Computed example of a mutant assay.
Amino acid sequence: MPNIDLILGADHGRRRSVRTEPTQRRSTQRLDALLDAAAEIVDELGFERLTTQMVAERAGASIGTVYRYFPDRVAVLHALRERSVRRYRERLAEAMEAAELAEWWDVVALALDVCAALYRDEPGFSVIHAAPREASEHDGEPELAHRVARLIEDEFGIADKQEVRFRLGVSLELGGALIHRAFERDAEGDPRYLEEAGRVVRAYLDEHLADAVSESSAA
């Protein structure tokens, strides 16, 4: 069974965007209700038009409640994105726990499949494409690329080197952009773009990770 903790890791995202971190269940539910409202607005109108007043009205809360947690609309969007990223990692970990990972590509393919699935059933998920990616403090590569690289090393022995993380980061960015485009064109995801996302990413990684895969096989 894959070590899914390598995908989950510690999550401190909410503390960066939320003004008051909830400590009680009721407060947590109130915060989630605000983010649920923001997600609905993003899906209906786009993130550019979201306002704190809209969030308050949609959630049935006072504007003061919104400002208790968020200083402005930008903080709302950041918190919604952080929640979406956290839920993505959780869903990816569940998928990996249930899957048979026969080769390194299975890890990347699942990452793409789960991304597409969340575009379908996680309200507001498109906001993940509208802000800078989380970068690792180690080398500036995307945090998700680090997590995937560590899992691939753990499962298949492909060394978690900077070059591997760079190539994974590029490939996940390419795949994510095509998946985002698929759902811009069709609410269920344009199948041509979804298929192309997998094909383009596989071709890119086959070319650029060939040496790393050969080294692990030889070892």
Rank of each mutant, 00 (worst) to 15 (best):
M1K: 15
P2T: 10
N3Y: 12
N3W: 12
I7H: 03
G9A: 14
G9R: 06
G9I: 06
G9S: 13
H12Q: 13
R14M: 14
V18M: 13
T20H: 15
E21P: 04
R26K: 15
R26A: 15
L31A: 13
L34H: 09
L35V: 10
D36G: 11
A37N: 05
A39N: 03
D43H: 05
F47P: 03
E48N: 08
E48C: 06
R49C: 07
R49W: 13
L50G: 00
L50Q: 02
T52H: 07
A56C: 10
R58S: 03
G60F: 01
A61Q: 09
S62R: 12
V66Y: 01
F70W: 05
P71I: 07
P71Y: 02
D72P: 09
R73V: 06
V74H: 12
V74K: 13
L77W: 09
H78W: 10
L80V: 08
R81K: 15
R81D: 01
R83T: 01
S84E: 11
S84M: 12
S84Q: 07
R91W: 03
L92R: 01
A93L: 14
E94D: 14
A95I: 06
A95T: 10
A102R: 13
W105V: 00
L110G: 00
A111C: 08
L112V: 04
V114P: 00
C115N: 02
A117T: 04
A117N: 07
Y119T: 02
R120A: 07
D121C: 13
E122T: 04
F125P: 02
I128D: 00
H129A: 07
A131C: 05
P132F: 02
A135L: 14
E137P: 04
E137A: 09
H138L: 13
G140W: 11
E141S: 07
E143W: 01
V148C: 05
V148E: 00
A149C: 12
L151N: 02
I152T: 09
E153F: 11
E153N: 11
D154K: 10
A159S: 13
D160W: 01
K161H: 10
V164K: 00
F166Y: 12
G169I: 02
G169Q: 06
V170R: 06
V170A: 02
L172T: 00
L174Q: 04
G175C: 02
G175I: 04
G176I: 00
A177V: 09
I179T: 02
R181H: 05
R181P: 00
R181Y: 01
F183G: 00
F183Q: 01
R185M: 07
D186W: 11
D186P: 01
G189N: 06
P191Q: 08
R192W: 11
R192N: 14
Y193V: 05
Y193S: 14
E195F: 10
A197G: 02
V201G: 00
A203H: 08
E207I: 06
L209G: 03
L209A: 12
A210E: 13
A210F: 03
A212Y: 03
A212L: 10
V213R: 10
E215K: 10
S216W: 07
S217V: 14
S217G: 09
A219P: 05
